[in-house]
Structures are given as structure tokens and as C-alpha cells.
């Protein structure tokens, strides 16, 4: 860091002073990141090369055995597929819905603070508690949704245990809970867009749909990009909704289990930390690849003013 082009010249006292304060201000974040994220990543990598003994004792070095077993384990590939499908369901739908809501809430309508609060509420509630309520609504015999379906004369749906439906049920919870977060960020982005553009385009006779696609979305693209990157990472790590909804005994287990859930089961339920660590390293690699692609692709669609 000391060898940046500027620092090639002898740094004067002012520069040094600035560096010092710079480091000082980022020190809490840096130290936190180092202790809570970076060191554990390497520890996990290290652990994934061992066969775990009971209670953290007597680990045996096995090289890449955990990885070989992982690549031959159909359940891991189910989990990769489920995680990706979940992300593909949640991200586009949640962003589309949040965009509409954010644009509407940006207008001067009566009681918009109340609406904003309502949309943000799911974000504040604890996921585990929220899922319990959803689980009740999805219940096959006594649930709210099946009651509705039956009362209009339709067949009831096994929301939780049907392998074809369960992942969609879980994605619905995921979408519902993430909208508030997206809306708040988008509202902040919308405030940044100068009103002049809208006035000018109105004079030229642009419809509001045209304005949405030609002004709002392009100018909101940095915010949208940020939301996409963070929520994809968040969705790839989905655990609590699935953990609370789908038991290992459920027939929907193989079609809903996510990588983190599989990691949890192997590490803590079956106390095989080595194998669990290998699974979580796979997740890390997948997330990294997706994020690199996004960083590359952003040049094509993100407008920084």
C-alpha cells in the first residue's frame, strides 16, 4: 500500500498523518472483518481437509477425501440446484415487486409513512418466528391457505411436504421478507433522481411507463446493482426458513435442502465438521463466481453519473 504512485515520492508529514487517521478510522471494521470473517474462512478451509473426530478431538488429516465424497454425493448437487432455484425465484420477483412499491411510495400519497412502515416490518421480525406463522398458514389439514382453497371448492395443496411445491412455498416467504429492505434502499435511490428529467420528459409527452423504463430504472441502476449483489449473496445463504419449514423426515427434504442447511446438518446434527466445511467451501466458490460475473456485467447496465 505504501507503494502507490503517489507514495513513490517521499511522503511528507501531512500524508502520513492522513494515513494514520485513515487506518485508525477503519481499524474497528478491519479488525472485526479479520477476526470474524477472514480468519474463520481459512480455519474452515483447514478443517475441510480433516475427518472430524468426536467433540473436536482426534481429527484425522484426509486430504481431499471430503471433497471427493462431496462431488459424489447426489444430495450436495440437490442442494446446489435448490439454492440456485431459490435465488432465481426470489431475486427477480422481489426486485420487480419492490421497484413497483418503491415508485408508488415515492409519490405524494396519503399515509405513505404508514405504508413504508408496513412494508419494512417483515425485515424487523425474527425469521424463525415469522416462519412459524407461515408454517401454520401452510399447514395441510388446518392451514389458512388450504382453508381458502377448500372454501372455493379447489383441491388443497400440500405446501410443506410436496417435493414440487415446498421450494416455492419457501421462496414466497423469502420474497415477502426481503421486499421491505429493497424498498427502503430504492426509496433512497429515487430521492437522488432530479425532478427536472421527469418535467422535461413530460413536456415531450412521455407516459409514466416510458418514464419508468427510460429515466427511473437507468438512474436507479447503481442502487439496483447493489441490491442485486447483496440479496443474491443473502439468498444463496438461505437457511432459517428451510430449517424451520422442512424436517429431514419430510419427502420435500431433498428438493428443498439448501447448501447451508446441508452444512448445518452435517456439521452439527451429524457432528461431521470436516464434511460440513467442505460443503460450505463449495458455497463460497459458487458465490464468488456469481459475484465476479456480476461485477463484470455491471459495466453493461449500470449508469454512474
Amino acid at each position: 500500500m505504501l507503494h502507490s504512485s503517489k507514495a513513490a515520492r517521499k511522503p511528507n508529514k501531512k500524508n502520513l498523518n492522513e494515513w494514520m487517521w485513515g487506518w485508525f478510522f477503519i481499524a474497528p471494521t478491519m479488525i472485526g472483518l479479520l477476526i470474524l470473517n477472514i480468519i474463520p474462512i481459512f480455519q474452515t478451509l483447514y478443517l475441510s481437509l480433516f475427518q472430524s473426530g468426536d467433540f473436536g478431538r482426534g481429527d484425522i488429516f484426509v486430504g481431499f477425501d471430503n471433497y471427493i465424497r462431496m462431488f459424489n454425493d447426489p444430495q450436495v448437487w440437490h442442494a446446489v440446484r435448490n439454492t440456485l432455484v431459490y435465488t432465481l425465484l426470489v431475486i427477480p420477483i422481489s426486485i420487480a415487486i419492490s421497484l413497483v412499491i418503491a415508485v408508488l411510495l415515492n409519490e405524494k400519497i396519503r399515509g405513505r409513512t404508514i405504508y413504508r412502515t408496513i412494508f419494512f416490518l417483515p425485515m424487523v421480525a425474527a425469521p424463525a418466528a415469522v416462519t412459524m406463522v407461515w408454517r401454520w398458514m401452510y399447514n395441510n389439514q388446518f392451514g389458512f391457505f388450504n382453508y381458502l382453497l377448500r372454501s372455493v371448492g379447489l383441491e388443497s395443496v400440500d405446501w410443506i411436504n410436496s417435493p414440487n411445491v415446498a421450494l416455492i412455498s419457501i421462496a414466497i416467504i423469502g420474497i415477502w421478507s426481503i421486499i421491505g429492505y429493497n424498498v427502503v434502499l430504492m426509496l433512497a435511490g429515487l430521492q437522488e433522481i432530479p425532478k427536472d428529467y421527469y418535467e422535461a420528459s413530460m413536456i415531450d409527452g412521455a407516459s409514466s411507463i416510458y418514464q419508468l423504463f427510460k429515466i427511473t430504472i437507468p438512474l436507479l441502476s447503481p442502487t439496483l446493482f447493489f441490491i442485486t449483489v447483496t440479496t443474491i449473496i443473502q439468498s444463496m445463504q438461505v437457511f432459517d426458513f428451510i430449517y424451520m419449514m422442512v424436517d429431514v423426515t419430510s419427502p420435500a427434504y431433498n428438493s428443498t435442502v439448501s447448501l447451508v442447511y446441508l452444512f448445518y446438518n452435517n456439521s452439527f446434527r451429524y457432528s461431521n465438521r470436516g464434511y460440513g466445511s467442505a460443503i460450505v467451501m463449495l458455497l463460497l466458490v459458487i458465490i464468488m463466481i456469481i459475484t465476479v460475473f456480476q461485477m463484470k456485467a455491471q459495466k453493461k447496465w449500470v449508469n454512474y453519473k
Binding site: 411436504n161 429431514v248 423426515t249 419430510s250 419427502p251 427434504y253 431433498n254 446438518n265 446434527r269 451429524y270
Partner: peptide, 21 residues
């Protein structure tokens, strides 16, 4: 020694018989 592990694995395979798969 590892009852909890194989009980879960057996459950995963048996549930297909309950659903008729």
C-alpha cells in the same frame, strides 16, 4: 454408535414409500 445419523438417512429413503414415489 451413530444412531442419530443412520436413523435420519433411513427416514430420507423411506418417505418415498409413504408418498407412493
Amino acid at each position: 454408535n451413530t444412531t442419530g445419523v443412520w436413523e435420519d438417512r433411513a427416514y430420507e429413503e423411506l418417505n418415498g414409500a409413504f408418498t407412493g414415489d
